[in-house]
Amino acid sequence: MSGLAEFLELAQPIVAVRISNVRGSSPREVGAFMLVAETALWGTVGGGQLEYMAIDEARALARSAECSRQMNVPLGPEIGQCCGGHVQLDLRVIDQAEKAQLLAQEAARMAALPEVLILGSGHIGRALAYAFAPLPVRAILVDSRAEELAHAPEGVEQLCTPLPELTLRGARAGAAYIVATHEHSLDFLLTSEALARGDAAYVGMIGSKTKRAKFESWTVGEVDQLVCPMAAAHKGDRRPEVIAAFVVAEVMARLAAFQDAVNRQSVRGKA
């Protein structure tokens, strides 16, 4: 079960397990939390014996007359983990008001996720959409062909539009653009639009060095930011799923670097 709203509708007590303090090494950071019901789980506090212990304690709390407990757990050989740190967990049976607060926080988190526009729903585009689905991004598969979007993985956000360039123009600053359409001319148009924005975290275009050279001779804009070929470090297996894995790694690294630059700029602005 992955959807928070669906999880919170369970007709059984739900316990929030939250990391409230960390000393030394820990598998998750302060504030990380999971939700525990008798028959389901949502989220994680890091896995391993720490999580097993937390789940057992949370379910025991849900069956008791108490509403909260606290756990202090050393992450050492005594529980079969070797992080070497110490964590404090706060456990609390949540009520309707806390459920509403969790849903509002999740909506805000989702709204703040960086956008990844996958322009083209062919084999590569669909493999990319599938690979991005579990990651902390808002991936949108864009195509003008409804019949191709129909083959997209279940649950992937899709947009069928005859004017994908308008979708590109409406994206937020710091988005990633992966251009992999069915036509080189459309690839060139969309890539040029993405580069012209000047605020992209990543602009990639499917193709070879030859295709890049043709694009550079066609466009009048700067091309330094363009990644083409994508997944250039990978050699050998060219199946869409393999290519997608390498492209996703490139994109996630660029998104992280972009956010780090924004954070540094914000700190300088406050100084």
Rank of each mutant, 00 (worst) to 15 (best):
Ser64Gly: 13
Ser64Arg: 04
Glu66Trp: 04
Cys67Asn: 13
Ser68His: 12
Ser68Asp: 13
Arg69Pro: 06
Gln70Lys: 14
Met71Leu: 15
Met71Ala: 13
Met71Glu: 07
Asn72Ser: 14
Asn72Gly: 08
Asn72Tyr: 08
Asn72Pro: 02
Val73Gln: 02
Pro74Asn: 08
Pro74Trp: 01
Leu75Lys: 00
Gly76Leu: 05
Gly76Asp: 14
Pro77His: 01
Glu78Ala: 09
Glu78Phe: 03
Ile79Trp: 02
Ile79Tyr: 01
Ile79Phe: 05
Ile79Cys: 03
Ile79Lys: 05
Gln81Pro: 06
Cys83Ala: 00
Gly84Gln: 04
Gly85Trp: 04
His86Ala: 04
Gln88Ala: 15
Gln88His: 12
Asp90Lys: 09
Asp90Ile: 07
Leu91Asn: 03
Leu91Gln: 02
Arg92Gly: 05
Arg92Tyr: 12
Arg92Thr: 14
Val93Ser: 07
Ile94Ala: 06
Ile94Glu: 07
Asp95Cys: 07
Asp95Val: 06
Ala97Tyr: 00
Ala97Gly: 08
Ala97Thr: 09
Ala97His: 04
Lys99Phe: 05
Ala100Met: 11
Ala100Pro: 00
Ala100Gln: 11
Gln101His: 12
Gln101Asp: 14
Leu103Gly: 00
Leu103Phe: 01
Ala107Leu: 13
Ala108Cys: 10
Ala108Tyr: 10
Ala108Asn: 13
Arg109Gln: 06
Arg109Val: 07
Arg109Glu: 06
Met110Lys: 15
Met110Val: 12
Met110Thr: 11
Ala111Thr: 07
Ala112Asp: 15
Ala112Met: 09
Leu113Ala: 10
Leu113Trp: 11
Leu113Glu: 12
Pro114Glu: 06
Glu115Ala: 12
Leu117Asn: 05
Ile118Val: 15
Ile118Ala: 02
Ile118Phe: 04
Leu119His: 04
Gly120Thr: 08
Ser121Asn: 08
Ser121Leu: 09
Ser121Phe: 10
Gly122Thr: 10
Gly122Ser: 12
Gly122Pro: 12
